[in-house]
Design a protein around this nucleic acid. Structure first.
Length: 281
DNA sequence: CGGCAAACCTGCGAGC
DNA sequence: TGCTCGCAGGTTTGCC
């Protein structure tokens, strides 16, 4: 389920149940997800106290009291479920089970197993390969028009593809790339290098606004995603373009019924992009 | 180095 | 009903 807003939704829920708590029991129910679990994964975690539940891009960063940090990525279909009281029977694809000292159960379920977990020394976190090259957090002060413009300079790929590159900006995925480009009025096919100056400023504002609104809505529930409480996210109802090919554009008078455009779906680097050719240039 | 397709894996809906 | 195909929110790999 995971782009930044969905991961942030999960982070908040996990923080609430885990921060300050000790892990009484941890169990992996298979040897690997996308990668094998590191040696002694469950054993090392058992007995640890969770100090913090953070996020970097789409990665959950869980700080523990004994100098270790748990890194968790949801991949495409990863989900956390939290049960404060008696949990139901284990379900298919429940791959990792955590239990806290005060009786909460947390389960990681991931049908496609593109997600993964890793356990690293907190001191070595800054050198973790997948985090080293990551670009700025889009909701932080480190991200602004000039920073984005500089990251896009010299890039020949379309802007949509550049936004999916986590070294340009962290946490953007296929949905919010399309949605932000729509808000900014920028064509997904535009060469990334030409997004400079006021266009870059506009795109930064568009990214920020769409992410903030999506977080407030608990993320988007298309198929897999639910909040860890079991509640659905509901930002999918606010999509302007994603998954709406053939429908009228909410921002202009485009309407496929009248033969003047509307939302179109195209494929870019093997992934769907949705946009309005009239409003986005 | 940059850009793109393919690979990883399972499930679901559409179409025949 | 049952099969096949295409598609799905991510990231890495390997090939031009």
């Amino acid at each position: 389920m995971p782009e930044l807003p969905e991961v942030e939704t999960v982070r908040k829920a996990l923080a609430e149940v885990l921060e300050g708590r000790r892990l009484a029991h941890v169990e992996t129910r298979r040897a690997d997800l996308r990668f094998p679990f590191p040696r002694g994964f469950a054993k090392k975690l058992t007995g640890c106290r969770v100090e913090s539940v953070g996020r970097r891009g789409k990665f959950l960063i869980i700080g523990l009291d004994d100098g270790l940090t748990l890194i968790s990525h949801l991949g495409m279909s990863g989900r956390y479920r939290i049960y404060l009281k008696t949990p139901p029977k284990l379900e298919k694809h429940d791959h990792v089970v955590f239990e806290t000292e005060n009786g909460a159960s947390i389960r990681f379920n991931d049908p496609r197993r593109f997600g993964f977990m890793d356990l690293v020394k907190t001191a070595a976190l800054a050198t973790y390969p997948m985090l080293v090259k990551m670009g700025p957090e889009p909701l932080s002060n480190a991200f602004n028009g000039p920073v984005l413009a500089a990251a896009l300079k010299g890039r020949k790929a379309p802007i949509k593809a550049a936004l999916l590159d986590q070294s340009v900006v962290a946490g953007i995925g296929n949905i919010y790339a399309s949605e932000a480009l729509f808000r900014a009025g920028i064509s997904p096919k535009r060469k990334a290098a030409t997004v400079q100056g006021s266009r870059a400023e506009k795109l930064v504002l568009a990214l920020r606004s769409v992410l903030i609104e999506a977080i407030a809505a608990g993320g988007s529930s298309l198929r897999d995603h639910r909040q860890p409480s079991g509640e659905l996210g509901y930002f999918q109802h606010a999509f302007a373009v994603y998954g709406r090919d053939g429908q009228p554009c909410p921002g202009c008078t485009c309407n496929p019924e009248t033969g003047v455009g509307g939302i179109r779906r195209i494929t870019q680097s093997g992934r769907s992009t949705f946009y309005c050719a009239r409003r986005q240039r």
